[in-house]
Amino acid sequence: MTDTVHVLNGPNLNLLGTREPEVYGRATLADVEAACRTACERHGLGLVFRQSNHEGELVTWLQEARGSLGVVLNAAAYTHTSIALADAIKAVGLNVVEVHLSNVFAREAFRHHSYISPVARAVICGLGIDGYRLAIDALAASRVN
C-alpha cells in the first residue's frame, strides 16, 4: 500500500467560493487543495487531488486509487444518486472517508440519503473544509491501527 491519499471531488465543487457561499463557505477548491496538501505533508503522505463534473471519470479515479492509503471523497450530488460510485468503492476495496462541506442532514430531505455511506469507513459533514483535514488525519491514523 502506498502512502498516498486521493482526494476526489464531484460536480460543481469547482465553483466553491462563489456557489452558494452561505451554504458552502467562501473557500475555493484551490483553498481545499492547499489544506489537503498541508495535512498530507504533516503526515508524510503523497496527495492526488482531483475534481470532475463527470460520474464516469470519478469511477475511473476510484479504480486508479486501488492500493493507495485511501480516498477522501466529496461526491457532491452524486452522493445521493450514484450506485456506480458505491460499486466502484466496493469493487476495489477502498478505504474511503466521505466528506461534505455542509451538514446534509440540515438540508433538503433528498440529501439525507447517501449511496456512499454504507461503503465508506467514515462520514464527515458540516465542518467546511476542515472536514477534509480530519478525513486525512483519519486515513493517516489507519496506517498504525
Score class of each variant (00 low, 15 high):
89 I>Y: 00
87 D>P: 06
71 V>H: 10
81 T>K: 07
83 I>Q: 11
71 V>L: 06
85 L>C: 04
96 V>F: 01
99 V>C: 01
71 V>Y: 08
97 V>H: 04
78 Y>W: 09
83 I>C: 10
89 I>C: 03
85 L>E: 03
85 L>Y: 11
74 N>W: 03
72 V>C: 07
97 V>Q: 13
87 D>G: 07
80 H>P: 12
66 R>Y: 04
69 L>A: 05
91 A>Q: 15
93 G>M: 06
85 L>V: 08
84 A>S: 13
94 L>V: 05
98 E>H: 11
72 V>E: 12
99 V>R: 13
78 Y>G: 01
91 A>R: 12
85 L>M: 09
84 A>Q: 07
67 G>V: 08
94 L>G: 10
72 V>D: 12
74 N>I: 02
88 A>S: 07
73 L>K: 08
99 V>H: 13
99 V>Q: 11
89 I>P: 00
66 R>W: 06
96 V>Y: 02
76 A>C: 11
91 A>T: 09
73 L>G: 13
88 A>W: 01
94 L>Q: 09
70 G>F: 00
68 S>L: 00
80 H>A: 06
90 K>Y: 11
80 H>N: 15
74 N>S: 09
95 N>K: 09
69 L>G: 05
81 T>Q: 12
99 V>D: 15
95 N>W: 08
99 V>S: 07
74 N>E: 11
91 A>C: 11
83 I>N: 06
99 V>W: 09
97 V>A: 09
88 A>M: 07
79 T>A: 03
73 L>M: 10
96 V>Q: 04
90 K>G: 13
69 L>Q: 10
66 R>K: 15
77 A>G: 13
99 V>Y: 08
93 G>Q: 14
88 A>R: 02
89 I>H: 01
92 V>K: 07
84 A>F: 05
81 T>S: 14
91 A>G: 14
98 E>I: 08
69 L>M: 04
88 A>C: 14
81 T>H: 14
74 N>T: 05
72 V>P: 13
70 G>C: 00
97 V>T: 12
70 G>V: 05
95 N>P: 12
67 G>A: 07
88 A>Y: 06
67 G>M: 11
96 V>R: 03
93 G>S: 06
